[in-house]
């Protein structure tokens, strides 16, 4: 099997912040490699530091110390302007709340993402990938939660990011809808080769990934390699 290239690497990363006079060590000495094209699930209980890890990985937050290397370049040293450019050219995001533009339809919302990419003519293709071809002209208030989340996935994919970060993408959804969303992410990964980093507290979701990083109290205390990925439809929910 071909060795996958390391796309993102963390070295000795610490993240500490003050909260009401108390120093909180959110991340402690994190070393991590993310390979291109893989699906990595960051799993852990509430307050474990998963979202902090995702924010630091994606450049949304800066580490207190350590290096974050993307294609060999330390993005931890980037200015805000450079980070914005970096995210525009390389990263996609989806969050638990969809945060779509309510006065634009499905296609227009996806185009908002496409306009950041180099090519803007793949919008219909992306909408097909997420299974919303029949809903292009609909507005957000006409869609269900799952459909809205799929729109946000399409928006993020439209600019062809190298890595997609998903923070609790199914947190606001029921089991059926949540599985549809996970299926969408899998298909995006398989068809477009986008690296996926998914944060969740749902252990069932961990089974869809190539690797599972278990985070507890700011450290990765366990790393599980899934020999085969489970289909989203088969995973236990909850």
């Amino acid at each position: 099997m071909e060795e996958k290239k390391t796309i993102l690497k963390l070295e000795n990363v610490y993240k500490t912040y003050m909260q009401g006079g108390t120093k909180t060590h959110a991340l402690n000495n994190i070393d991590l490699d993310i390979k291109s094209g893989e699906i990595v699930v960051i799993l852990g209980p509430s307050g474990a530091g998963k979202t902090t890890l995702l924010n630091v990985l994606s450049g949304l937050d800066s580490p207190t110390s350590g290096r974050i290397l993307f294609d060999g370049k330390d993005i931890a040293k980037y200015s805000q302007m450079k980070l914005t450019k970096f995210r525009k050219e390389n990263l996609g995001f989806i969050f638990q709340t969809y945060n779509l533009l309510e006065h634009l339809n499905v296609k227009e919302n996806v185009m908002v993402g496409a306009k950041l990419g180099k090519s803007k003519d793949n919008v219909d293709e992306i909408i097909e990938v997420v299974g919303l071809s029949n809903h292009k002209k609909k507005y957000m208030h006409e869609l269900s939660g799952g459909e809205q989340q799929r729109v946000s996935i399409a928006r993020a994919l439209a600019k062809k990011p190298s890595i997609m970060f998903a923070d609790e993408p199914t947190g606001a959804l029921d089991e059926k809808t949540g599985k549809i969303v996970l299926r969408t992410l899998i298909e995006a990964n398989e068809k477009l080769g986008t690296t996926m980093i998914i944060v969740t507290h749902n252990p069932g979701i961990a089974k869809i990934g190539d690797r599972v990083l278990h985070v507890n109290s700011g450290v990765i205390d366990k790393e599980i390699i899934n020999e085969t990925r489970m289909a989203p439809e088969e995973i236990p929910w909850g």
Binding site: L60, T84, R87, T97, V112, K159
Partner: peptide
């Protein structure tokens, strides 16, 4: 602000 936050995450200036 949430929509704006996502747009800025995606790379909008």
């Amino acid at each position: 602000r949430l929509q704006i936050g996502v747009l800025k995450s995606l790379g909008y200036k």
